[in-house]
Write a protein that binds this DNA or RNA. Structure first.
Length: 685
DNA sequence: CTAGGGTTAG
C-alpha cells in the first residue's frame, strides 16, 4: 500500500471513531511527508475534522486546498450539517454552483436533508427540481431524501407522491415514509403503511421498528406496541447496545404511562444507551418523581456514556414545566461545561426554562448570544414575551426573525397571534392570520382560530367571533366555544352566552369548567335561579374541579400550599404578615379588601375557600416571612397550577405599591409581572 | 474519499 493510502485509511478510522487527537497527528504527518496538497487526503481531512466537531479546522483545510472536487464540497457540507449548521450547508451549495462544480447524488441528498431540517420547502423544492432535471431523482438515496425533506416541511402529500412514483424502493424509503407520517402525528397511516410494507415482502429493520414504536406511543396504543416488542424479541434484536430500538421501547412504555414496564425493559438492556436513559429519566420526571429522575441523571453523568443534547433538553424541559428555577440554573451551568451544551435544542430548552420561570432578562441575553437560532428559538421567545404581556416585543421578534430568513411555522403563528390577543393588537393579528391562511393553509389548526376568536371576543366583536367559528373549515372544539363564552361574560352578552353555553354542555357535558362559566354568566346578570340550577347540575353529576395549588421556592426548597392550607409550620406567621400587609395597604393607599368579588365568582375557587385564604396569598406570605427576598433582590416568584383569582390579582397589585417589590406570578395561563401597582397583563387575562 | 432512516427543545 502506498503512503497516501495508509494515511487515508488512518483518517477514515479517526472519522468513524471521532478520534480527534490521532487525526491531528496524522494531519501533521501528511504535511511533513509532503502530501499536503493531495486532493483525496484533504477530502478525508475535511471529513475527519467535521466528524470530530472541529468545523473551523475543516473550513481551514478546505480553504487552503489548491483544487477541490465535488467530494470536497460535499464533505464540508456534511460537516456543517452534522454540527447543526444546515444553513451553512445550503449556502455552500449555492457557492459550489458558482464554482461550476456539478453536484452528485450525495450533494443533493445532503442539501435536501438540510432544507428539511430548516423546514424551508421552497429551497427543498428547488433542489428537487435539480434532481429531476439530472434524473438523480430516481436514485433511491435521493428519492428517500426527497421524502424526508417534504415530510419535515409539513408537506406530507408531496412526500407520499414521491414515495408512490419511486421506481426503486428500499427499506429506507418505507422507513422515511413511516417517519413522515409520524412527524404529521398520523399514527394510523403509519400502522397501515407498515402492514403494506410487510405485504410487499419488505423486511422491517431496527429503524422500522423504532418508527413504529414511536407511532404506537403517539397513538397510546400499548397493545400494538407490545406486539412489536414481542416480535423484536423473537428476532433477537431488542437488548443489545447497537440498536436504537431500545430507547423507543422505553419511550413507548413511558408515554403510555406504564412506567413499571419501562423500567423492566431498561433493566434488561445489557448495554444501555443514552436514548433509553433519557426516555426513562423523562418518564420519572413527568410523573413528578424528580428524586428518581435526578438520581438516574447523576448515574448517567457518572457512566461512561456522554450526556447528549436529547437527555439535557428533555430534563431541562421538565424543570421549565415545574418552574424550578434553581435546578434549571444549575443545569444550565452544567450544560456550559460539556460539548452537547451547545446543541441548539439544549439552548432552546434553557431559553424556555428561563422564560417559564419569569427570568426574561436572562433569556434575552442568552438569545442574543446564541450563535445559531432556529424557528424554535424564535418561537420560544415570542411565546415567552406574549405570556409576559409584552405583545409589542413579540411582534418585533416575529418581524425580526423573517429578516433573519427564518420561516415561521404553525406554532410560531400561534405564539404571535396569542401575544397580539393578550396585548389587544387587533390589526396586526388580523394581518398575520390572513398571511398564515394564504401561505400555510394545511398547517392551520383550531387553535389558530381560537386565538382570533379570543381577540375579537375581548374587543367585544362577539358576532364576528361567532361567525368565524361557524365558518371555519375545521370542526369546532369545546375549547373554542369556551373562549367565546368567556368573551360573552366579559361583555355581559347574556343572549349569546346562553346559546353558546348550551352548545358547550352538549359538546362537553362532563367538564365542570363549562358549568361554572355558564353559572357565572347568569349570576353576573342576577339570574340567581339559573345560576344555582347550573351549579346544582355539577353536584348531581359529581363533577370535581382540580384543587387550586400554589408554590414558592425558598432557598432551593419548594413549598406547596392548597387553599386555606394550615399545614405549613409557619402558618401563624404567614397570617400575621398578610394581616399586617392589609393594614398597611389600608393606611397608606386606602385599599380595602373587596369581599363581594368572591361572592359569586367560583371561577377557580369555591365560596368556602375564598372565606379562608387562597393558596397564592399563602405562598406570598411565606416568601415575605422567611426572607425569600435576599439582600439586594426585589423580586418574588409565585407559581399556581390554576389561574390566579381576580381578588388576589388586585391584592398583589396594591401590595407592589406599598412594598416596592416586583412579583412574578406564573399561573396556568400566563405570567403576571406586578410592579408599581400595575400588572403586565393589563388586568385582562 | 462524500450519503440517506431513529430519540430532544416551541
Amino acid at each position: 500500500m502506498s503512503e497516501p493510502q495508509v494515511f487515508a485509511k488512518l483518517l477514515r478510522n479517526c472519522s468513524k471513531n471521532h478520534l480527534l487527537g490521532q487525526g491531528v497527528q496524522v494531519h501533521g504527518a501528511i504535511v511533513k511527508m509532503g502530501f499536503g496538497h493531495d486532493l483525496m487526503l484533504n477530502n478525508d481531512l475535511v471529513d475527519m475534522y467535521g466528524k470530530c466537531g472541529m468545523m473551523e479546522v475543516a473550513c481551514d483545510v478546505f480553504d487552503r486546498m489548491l483544487e477541490r472536487n465535488v467530494v470536497s464540497w460535499t464533505a464540508l457540507m456534511c460537516g456543517h450539517l452534522q454540527n447543526g449548521n444546515a444553513r451553512e450547508s445550503l449556502s455552500l451549495f449555492s457557492k459550489m454552483g458558482y464554482a461550476e462544480v456539478e453536484p452528485n447524488e450525495f450533494t443533493l441528498s445532503t442539501n435536501l436533508k438540510a432544507s428539511g431540517i430548516l423546514g424551508i420547502a421552497e429551497n427543498g423544492m428547488q433542489i428537487h427540481g435539480v434532481c429531476a432535471k439530472s434524473s438523480f431523482e430516481w436514485m433511491p438515496v435521493v428519492g428517500n431524501s426527497i421524502i424526508d425533506m417534504y415530510s419535515k416541511c409539513g408537506r406530507i402529500s408531496d412526500a407520499a407522491r414521491m414515495f408512490s412514483i419511486m421506481p426503486v424502493r428500499n427499506v429506507i424509503s418505507w422507513n422515511s415514509m413511516i417517519a413522515g407520517y409520524n412527524i404529521e402525528g398520523n399514527g394510523e397511516k403509519a400502522l397501515l403503511l407498515f402492514q403494506k410494507m410487510q405485504k410487499n415482502g419488505e423486511v422491517p429493520d431496527e429503524y422500522t421498528y423504532t418508527s413504529m414504536l414511536k407511532a404506537c406511543s403517539c397513538l397510546g396504543a400499548v397493545g400494538e406496541g407490545t406486539q412489536l416488542h414481542a416480535s423484536l424479541i423473537t428476532r433477537g434484536i431488542p437488548y443489545s447496545a447497537q440498536t436504537t430500538v431500545t430507547g423507543a421501547l422505553v419511550d413507548l412504555y413511558v408515554k403510555c404511562r406504564h412506567l413499571f414496564e419501562a423500567r423492566r425493559v431498561f433493566n434488561q438492556i445489557r448495554q444501555k444507551n443514552v436514548i433509553s436513559w433519557s426516555a426513562l429519566i423523562l418518564g420519572y420526571a413527568q410523573e413528578g418523581n424528580l428524586p428518581e429522575a435526578m438520581y438516574l441523571f447523576r448515574q448517567l453523568r457518572e457512566s461512561r456514556y456522554q450526556v447528549d443534547g436529547f437527555a439535557l433538553s428533555s430534563l431541562i424541559g421538565v424543570f421549565a414545566d415545574f418552574a424550578l428555577v434553581e435546578q434549571g440554573k444549575q443545569m444550565h451551568a452544567y450544560t456550559i461545561k460539556i460539548p452537547s451544551g451547545l446543541d441548539i435544542s439544549v439552548v432552546n430548552s434553557v431559553l424556555d426554562m428561563y422564560l417559564k420561570c419569569g427570568l426574561t432578562d436572562e433569556a434575552e441575553i442568552l438569545f442574543r448570544e446564541m450563535e445559531a437560532r432556529n424557528v424554535i428559538s424564535w418561537t420560544v421567545m415570542i411565546t415567552g414575551y406574549g405570556k409576559h404581556g409584552l405583545g409589542k416585543e413579540a411582534v418585533r421578534l416575529f418581524n425580526e426573525m423573517q429578516l433573519d430568513r427564518i420561516e415561521p411555522d404553525g406554532v410560531t403563528y400561534l405564539a404571535v397571534l396569542s401575544a397580539c390577543s393578550h396585548s389587544g393588537l387587533i390589526e396586526e393579528s388580523q394581518e398575520y392570520f390572513s398571511r398564515f391562511c394564504d401561505s400555510q393553509q394545511s398547517k392551520i389548526k383550531v387553535e389558530h382560530y381560537a386565538c382570533m376568536v379570543d381577540l375579537l371576543g375581548r374587543a367585544g366583536r362577539l358576532k364576528e367571533a361567532k361567525d368565524l367559528i361557524q365558518k371555519m373549515p375545521l370542526k369546532p372544539t369545546a375549547g373554542i366555544w369556551q373562549t367565546l363564552l368567556s368573551a360573552c361574560r366579559m361583555h355581559g352578552d347574556l343572549d349569546m352566552g346562553r346559546e353558546v353555553g348550551e352548545i358547550l354542555l352538549r359538546l362537553d357535558g362532563n367538564n365542570p369548567v363549562n358549568y361554572v362559566m355558564l353559572s357565572n354568566l347568569y349570576a353576573d346578570s342576577r339570574y340567581w335561579k339559573d345560576s344555582e340550577r347550573i351549579r346544582h347540575m355539577v353536584k348531581m353529576k359529581g363533577l370535581k374541579k382540580e384543587a387550586g395549588r400554589s408554590w414558592v421556592e425558598i432557598d432551593k426548597e419548594v413549598h406547596y400550599f392548597y387553599n386555606g392550607d394550615g399545614t405549613h409550620p409557619l402558618t401563624e406567621k404567614i397570617h400575621e404578615v398578610l394581616k399586617e400587609m392589609e393594614k398597611r395597604m389600608k393606611e397608606e393607599i386606602g385599599y380595602v379588601h373587596k369581599v363581594n368579588f368572591s361572592l359569586h365568582d367560583v371561577d377557580e375557587e369555591s365560596k368556602e375557600d375564598s372565606l379562608r385564604v387562597h393558596s397564592e396569598k399563602l405562598a406570598i406570605g411565606l416568601a415575605l416571612v422567611s426572607g425569600g427576598l435576599k439582600e439586594g433582590e426585589r423580586l418574588i416568584r409565585i407559581f399556581k397550577n390554576l389561574r390566579v383569582c381576580g381578588d388576589c390579582h388586585t391584592f398583589i397589585k396594591n401590595l407592589t405599591k406599598v412594598l416596592k417589590i416586583v412579583f412574578v406570578v406564573r399561573d396556568a395561563n400566563r405570567f403576571h409581572r406586578f410592579e408599581n401597582g400595575l400588572c403586565s397583563c393589563g388586568d385582562y387575562w
